[in-house]
Nucleic acid binder design. Structure first.
Lengths: 198, 198
DNA sequence: ACAGTTTTAGATCAATTGCTTTAGAATATC
DNA sequence: GATATTCTAAAGCAATTGATCTAAAACTGT
């Protein structure tokens, strides 16, 4: 019963993601946002409420299309250890390819916005728990199949993989060098190998 | 031949470090800075030039007193493997203790300011190279002494330790939980152990 | 066709940003 | 003790910030 919105919501969200991803929350002004989203400031406030809400929506959109998609592709389509390897291979490759050094919006936000915003703190921590849970499921399945070592608990191995993952995301912004990132992953994957004796 | 400065430079730098550490570069205004440093805005510009320069000095001061001090204490006073363990133990402990979730100013800056500022990009990358070099020296020395495994190259093990370190720094801001951080470090240290067979 | 609603665009708001200026107080050298 | 220099304090600068308002344009349902 009224004039319909002229813009596609997921399309403008993609643009918002890109902007926050490149410049962070604080350094992105509402005008920057509106321009890159191709809408006016009034439309932005009309459709989303305020800057924080745009960010909230953008972050959720990013997590869904980035991490969620990756987990879906690898966990269901590959054996556990291969899923872990593919996960890291893809992230390393994208980190090296990305000339903008954007890193990971979630990790960037974990450092920039989480510490001073209880809401985002909880949201971001939850996602990190999900990343850890993904690794844990893979490790547990691999341990059952005998393709992953059982000398360390699945919990600890998952924690290590989470940490390695976050480390890669930091280096992707500061030192996106292939030798460094691949060399970092190599020992981590080696740690998963079962001991030849058992 | 003129009126001397009324404030102690390292004291105000400590205050600047604390401010940038807690709120980041963008979210810290010059007024915030001046107030926490206990000097006026004019004195700040008089003594340091501009906000960027204050940050540059503060970051250098932080690296020196934080990372530099730690390396000095552990590398010279402990056997190589113990130095690595002490390094991680101290960082984990401080991360858990810190109610402000400040994390590490260097890592925070690597994500916030490095990607868009070539100067800081180089500076921060250099420090990360030094962290990696510290780990590599420890691993190499440990491998010579036989207390660290030689199944992986010292270069790769150092890269892994660097990545684990950065991962801890991220989690320190988002999920500073003892079980998580200690569980993360455990497999990494296990990886260093020489194989019993050799 | 009309009424009702919601979109747009652009001007505009007060507040804050990094930074400068002006004025005066304080000190080392001669 | 006079001079020169550099400090501090506070007001003030233009630009930008997040957010709002007014009005005109556009669409749906009756």
């Amino acid at each position: 019963m009224a004039r319909p919105r002229e813009f596609d919501e997921t399309a403008v969200l993609d643009a918002a993601v890109r902007q926050f991803w490149m410049y962070g929350y604080e350094a992105t002004s509402v005008r920057d946002l509106a321009q890159s989203m191709g809408i006016t400031g009034a439309s932005l406030y009309n459709a989303f409420g305020d800057k924080r809400s745009v960010f909230r929506r953008a972050l959720a959109h990013y997590v869904e299309t980035s991490f969620g998609d990756r987990v879906g592709r690898f966990e269901k389509g590959l054996p556990p250890k291969a899923a872990i390897e593919a996960f890291f291979r893809e992230i390393v490759e994208r980190s090296i390819q990305d000339k903008d050094r954007k890193g990971c919006l979630l990790v960037n936000s974990a450092l920039e916005v989480a510490p001073h915003d209880p809401d985002f703190q909880a949201t971001i921590a939850e996602v990190l728990v999900k990343v850890e849970a993904f690794f844990r499921r893979c490790v547990q399945a691999g341990q059952r199949d005998g393709e992953i070592s059982t000398t360390q608990s699945a919990e600890d191995l998952a924690r290590l993989l989470l940490g390695v993952h976050l480390g890669i995301r930091v280096l992707a912004r500061a030192r996106p060098e292939r030798a460094l990132l691949e060399g970092l992953v190599r020992p981590a994957l080696e740690l998963l190998k079962p001991t030849p004796s058992s």
